[in-house]
Design a protein around this nucleic acid. Sequence first.
DNA 1: CCGGATCCCGTGAGATACTG
DNA 2: CAGTATCTCACGGGATCCGG
Lengths: 145, 145
Amino acid sequence: MATHGRFTEDQVAAARAHSTDDPPAEVDPRVEQLVNDLIGRVADKWTMLILEILAEHGELRFTRIGKLVGGISQKMLTQTLRQMERDGLLVRTVHPVVPPRVEYRLTALGLSLGAAFCGVWIWAGDHLAQVEQARRAFDERAARE
Amino acid sequence: MATHGRFTEDQVAAARAHSTDDPPAEVDPRVEQLVNDLIGRVADKWTMLILEILAEHGELRFTRIGKLVGGISQKMLTQTLRQMERDGLLVRTVHPVVPPRVEYRLTALGLSLGAAFCGVWIWAGDHLAQVEQARRAFDERAARE
DNA sequence: CCGGATCCCGTGAGATACTG
DNA sequence: CAGTATCTCACGGGATCCGG
């Protein structure tokens, strides 16, 4: 089975296992809302991309992440990394040398999120062609008015 | 095992199964780029939320989706639904009656993406407390300068 | 030199009003 | 009811400056 080559079977299995068996039915709407908010934060383009890069490479410097992500501004890179640090997804280590050296590394929490996202990457790779075909069909129909 | 209560075991299993066994190593950087682009489109806050709502409820009207998602503007709702339709994730059915009645329903492709995202929802529910604690710790440290 | 803070500007999101 | 049109404004990108 494929785990995108970046996560172990165990990590993915852990991501899929529930720590708490859910009560029969009904979820507290307040919890529901909190989960939705968290999804809103985490389901961000740059967050997902950075998460993936760090999961793949282990520990990286600021500029390196920017290069690997591609197309991200330094501003958004800093901002996203700070937010991820605040959410406990990664740790930021500053080495007091010159030139400055700042390393970013995922925490266990960040790794678990990366494992949870793994399925989405697999999906993207597997269904890329289908999406492109759907787009062509849609655009063609739109062009015909 | 939990499947977020919205997807069957089979759907989730299908989402995790690779249709093609990847060749030993190396991925084509061009494909890599395309996958990243696709992730960027699909890893959108509103897309994920709408996908979830539709996976849960089956078929819904425009306004109903807006209510269920909560906090989305009509503009973004229209825009996101159109984009998802273009990507082949859902079908839009217009009933030529008055008042107008437009139904949205996920396609098989959309359902498979929902199943792939399932792990992220489970993660959010399971690690909500950890994230909140990390934020409090970060904010407290920041306040102490 | 690297990491990132700051400024300026354009795109894109939100709120409101309007139409078929 | 399901959008479209318009306005406004905050957020994102790019260039520049700065501290170590």
